[in-house]
């Protein structure tokens, strides 16, 4: 009998589209990232950045090393969190699979959101490794009791960065410049989100922009968790709210820009 298979679709199909297809797409696009490429790209660059920032901070004498370790460790999650979803559409375009992908009836919101999950886990893992490096170099002390809350902070921050990456990825449906845009966002975060430069040092409007960007409350929450100060859950709620807004914006953009690219015949542009 012809044409009956996918008409049995139910919740398990949606579940598989989110988790299984999301993971398989991640492998399809990033399997080139073997340990020999993954370690220098996702771990090596942030380690160098972290060491450089700590030494610069020491030289300036503004803040103790743990301030820079936490800021740069959390910023490290943006590398995977931001670039993986941003590249997920650009990679389809370069691989010539975008047309085949968008010719399927798969729910776009579920399909592309599913690609965020591996990015969140990779991003949180990278940040954890950076904190481990900071601890090994005796620049930061992570109390055992703070680990659950710290883990949650890393996950929420990585989610926020990945949601931002999904917005950038959605823009990639319409333009070929998603990777460039992801780089602009990454370095804007470095400058404006309290990674190395406190908000108090920024002009008021730039500080406001920084507060609205992903990761800024996550960094502050991590600093409070490690110092034993309160207020981290409230900050994480703000970070989650930003992530939710970014996911909604990404889903809206995916819908609008997919139609736009069908109109402008830009799906095959490389």
């Amino acid at each position: 009998m012809v044409g009956t298979l996918q008409r049995n679709a139910g919740p398990s199909v949606t579940w598989r589209l989110f988790f299984v297809a999301g993971w398989r797409s991640y492998l399809a696009l990033f399997r080139w990232l073997r340990p020999s490429a993954f370690i220098p790209t996702v771990i090596g660059v942030p380690v160098v950045q972290l060491i450089w920032a700590v030494h610069l901070g020491r030289y300036l004498g503004a803040y103790p090393p743990d301030y820079y370790v936490v800021g740069n460790a959390l910023h490290a999650c943006a590398m995977a969190g931001l670039f993986a979803p941003a590249h997920s559409i650009q990679g389809e375009r370069y691989g010539g699979t975008l047309t085949a992908l968008l010719a399927t009836p798969a729910n776009r919101a579920v399909m592309f959101s599913g690609r965020v999950l591996p990015a969140v886990l990779t991003g949180a893992f990278t940040s954890a490794v950076m904190l481990g490096v900071g601890t090994a170099l005796d620049w930061v002390h992570v109390p055992l009791g703070s680990l659950p809350m710290l883990g949650l902070t890393l996950l929420v921050t990585a989610l926020s960065c990945s949601a931002c990456g999904l917005v950038v990825g959605a823009v990639g449906l319409r333009t070929r410049e998603a990777t460039f845009l992801a780089n602009v966002v990454l370095y804007s975060m470095l400058l404006l989100c309290g990674v190395n430069i406190p908000f108090a040092w920024l002009p008021g409007w730039l500080a406001a922009v920084g507060h609205a960007m992903p990761m800024s409350q996550g960094i502050e929450a991590a600093r409070r968790v490690l110092s034993g100060a309160g207020g981290a859950p409230g900050l994480l709620c703000w970070e989650l709210l930003k992530a939710a807004v970014l996911v909604l914006l990404a889903l809206y953009l995916l819908q609008v820009l997919e139609r736009g690219s069908r109109e402008k015949a830009s799906l095959d542009d490389v």
């Binding site: 298979l5 398989r24 010539g96 047309t99 085949a100 798969a106 399909m111």
Partner: peptide, 29 residues
């Protein structure tokens, strides 16, 4: 949809993984 040329397949996945991915995209139980 059956495309011609090299485009449309995930080169780094195996044949069966390509089909499993599209099976999920087409909602096949």
């Amino acid at each position: 949809v059956i495309l011609g040329g090299d485009a449309g397949l995930y080169a780094r996945l195996t044949a069966v993984d390509n089909l499993l991915l599209f099976a999920d995209l087409y909602g096949i139980p």
